[in-house]
Design a binder for these strands. Structure first.
Length: 262
DNA sequence: ATGGTCGTTGTACGA
């Protein structure tokens, strides 16, 4: 049975409950993975989503920061979480579908502004988080798994508006790209979005600070859909909903979709 | 070439 999955950094699910409902109503993904919900789970707005058929929720939250949620029309069970880099943040949660497929939803630390762990603790924490991801995938090679989320790294030259200009900007520095690549290789993860759309510039995030995000188009592909090799061949139809960046009171990220025939 | 905008919480900090 095919299912469509979307991942979206919502930047406060309570402020943007209406935008989530708009997405669910217009695009009807079977599963929606959210990051930066910025709320404890007891304050997650479940009722409206349930009324639209999204009755299943597996989530981790905290007050004000971070937080990840998997909202689903299909039955899912809680498959745990992790606390990579021992930050004590809600940055990962996993859910299992009835067919055994496990969905990992990640919010990798942004890493601050200075790309140097000596000068900026947050940058070191980001690298450590990615190293711990790598080690976890090495120790326990994932199978029949999907990994999505805001990984806060744009790995390819055509994942950013200007490769050369961003080489020293956090999210596109070589050391971050290498750490992400090491984590990806450790799990043999296939970049599903780039499997489906191998050529051309792709962005999923545009800064709030640009005067005209659409005209300037200084985007980055920070949000990803990966799958293990045993199910990556079942993935197709990847797309990025650029138009969501133009919605009223938007998130600075837009949803990324993929469909799996499993 | 620098500063630009959001969200949450509280008038600072993270992104």
């Amino acid at each position: 049975m095919p299912f469509t999955l979307a991942t979206w950094n919502i930047n406060s699910v309570r402020l943007r409950e209406g935008l989530v409902q708009k997405l669910l109503g217009e695009e009807t993904p079977d599963i929606l993975c959210l990051q930066e919900i910025k709320t404890p789970i007891d304050k997650f707005p479940t009722e409206g989503f349930a009324a639209m058929g999204y009755r299943h929720l597996v989530a981790r939250g905290q007050k004000g920061y971070n937080g990840v949620a998997i909202l689903s029309k299909l039955p899912i069970t809680d498959a745990g979480d992790s606390d990579y880099a021992a930050l004590g943040h809600a940055r990962h949660v996993a859910a299992r579908l009835e067919n055994g497929v496990v969905i990992h939803n990640f919010y990798v630390p942004a890493g601050g502004d200075i790309p140097d762990r000596e000068e900026n603790v947050k940058f070191g924490q980001k690298l450590d988080f990615l190293t711990d991801m790598r080690d976890a995938f090495r120790a326990d090679r994932p199978q029949r798994a999907i990994l999505v989320g805001d990984l806060n790294i744009a790995p390819r030259e055509d994942d950013v508006w200007n490769h050369k200009a961003l080489l020293k900007i956090v999210s596109h520095t070589p050391i971050e790209v290498q750490h992400l690549s090491d984590a990806q290789e450790a799990g043999a993860w296939v970049d599903v979005t780039r499997k489906d759309i191998p050529e051309g510039r792709l962005y999923s995030w545009w800064s709030y600070r640009a005067a005209d995000w659409d005209a300037a188009d200084k985007g980055r592909r920070l949000d990803h859909v990966w799958a293990t090799p045993d199910i990556a061949g079942a993935a197709h139809g990847s797309r990025i909903l650029r138009s969501a960046r133009g919605w009223d009171q938007p998130s600075d990220h837009v949803p990324v979709f993929a469909t799996f025939d499993l």
